[in-house]
């Protein structure tokens, strides 16, 4: 014990004594700084008009939406003809199938035969005409009343066309255990 430290007289509790050391300066300074910061922070956000959490969220969502719209505008609407090349591209189909097996399989079956969701291989369609743009529309917007979630953002944007092309490609495969037809029959011309 350094000499300058002294024990406080008459502080003896079951043999435990206490030294009369001052509060450490750096410790006290830390305390003061946190208190000053607390006062300023509270004043700024609660008393003098700092942004609320709602305002901060609105502004951040605004810029995120702008980014989303910019990306969407960049991609021009394509027709069925534009997409058909994908169907004959084995790479695209393989990628689409892999994604299908993780995201779509639980409801539509590993071969698109239908479980909770409808059979995707027959000639009957509930929403749209079974063309790739129609499949994309259902994937991206979902059919919430029927339990089809929106997959926009969940299936990565650069994969969605591959998935739609894969779904289109399994038409007519007639897998075992296929679910009974639902929806309207669509005449295909391919």
């Amino acid at each position: 014990m350094p000499d300058k430290e002294k024990l406080i007289e008459n502080h003896d509790y079951d043999g435990i004594q206490e030294l009369d050391n001052p509060l450490p300066g750096w410790w006290l300074m830390t305390f003061y700084i946190t208190v000053i910061f607390a006062v300023i922070y509270f004043g700024y956000y609660q008393l003098f008009g700092g942004p609320t959490l709602d305002e901060e969220l609105s502004s951040e969502m605004g810029s995120i939406k702008a980014e989303q719209e910019k990306t969407e505008e960049a991609g021009e609407a394509k027709s069925q003809q534009d997409y058909l090349a994908l169907v004959s591209n084995p790479d695209a189909i393989a990628k689409g199938k892999a994604e299908f097996l993780t995201k779509c399989m639980p409801c539509h079956g590993d071969k698109g035969q239908g479980i909770i969701g409808p059979n995707l291989t027959d000639d009957y369609w509930i929403h749209g005409d079974g063309s790739i743009p129609a499949i994309l529309k259902v994937m991206n917007e979902g059919v919430l009343d029927k339990g089809m979630p929106t997959w926009k953002g969940v299936i990565p944007a650069d994969m969605e066309e591959d998935v739609a092309a894969y779904v289109y490609s399994i038409h007519g495969t007639n897998p075992p255990g296929a679910k009974a037809p639902q929806g309207q029959i669509i005449e295909h011309n391919n």
Binding site: M1, L7, I8, H11, E18, L19, D20, N21, L23, P24
Partner: peptide, 12 residues
């Protein structure tokens, strides 16, 4: 008790 030392600072 275990260290057999006085408390560093009563004021603290």
């Amino acid at each position: 008790k275990a260290a057999n030392r006085p408390i560093y600072s009563y004021r603290l």
